[in-house]
């Protein structure tokens, strides 16, 4: 019984450490300048936010308003009760998307496509 407790404590500690490492690794990823907006699983719009100079409002469906400026994207308005996507704040890199579960909206970031880079250069 005691051994089993120790075994599980070891397994869980290892899992927590792995998760923390994963989260830290994600946060060090460089900024990714394009936001893909998905509504109910379909890509509705891609926004290149990195080059924006003025803040921009992007309505998504009926329930959400996304905001973007040159420093990141964030959810400004959501008509759901939990408001979690707003509390997620501004994102600019990493793998974590802005997710509004009740309205089935996700905003994921990615690097601009290779040919875009070519043009920019």
């Amino acid at each position: 019984m005691k051994n089993k407790n120790l075994l599980y404590i070891a397994v869980f500690s290892a899992a927590i450490i792995l998760c923390v490492i994963g989260i830290l690794a994600l946060q060090t990823r460089p900024a990714q300048g394009v936001a893909d907006i998905y509504l109910e699983g379909e890509l509705v719009r891609s926004v290149e936010w990195a080059s924006l100079e003025q803040p921009m409002e992007i309505p998504i469906g009926d329930g959400n308003i996304l905001c973007a400026d040159g420093e990141g994207v964030w959810m400004k308005h959501a008509d759901c009760p939990d408001q979690l996507c707003i509390k997620q704040g501004k994102i600019k890199g990493g793998a974590l998307s802005i997710v509004c579960l009740p309205n089935r909206v996700t905003v994921t970031l990615r690097a601009p496509k290779a040919e875009m880079d070519g043009v920019a250069r």
């Binding site: 998905y38 109910e40 997710v99």
Partner: peptide
């Protein structure tokens, strides 16, 4: 529901 597998990253948290 969201059709995006990127939500699996949430599992880390």
């Amino acid at each position: 529901l969201t059709g995006s597998f990127s939500v699996y990253w949430l599992l880390l948290y």
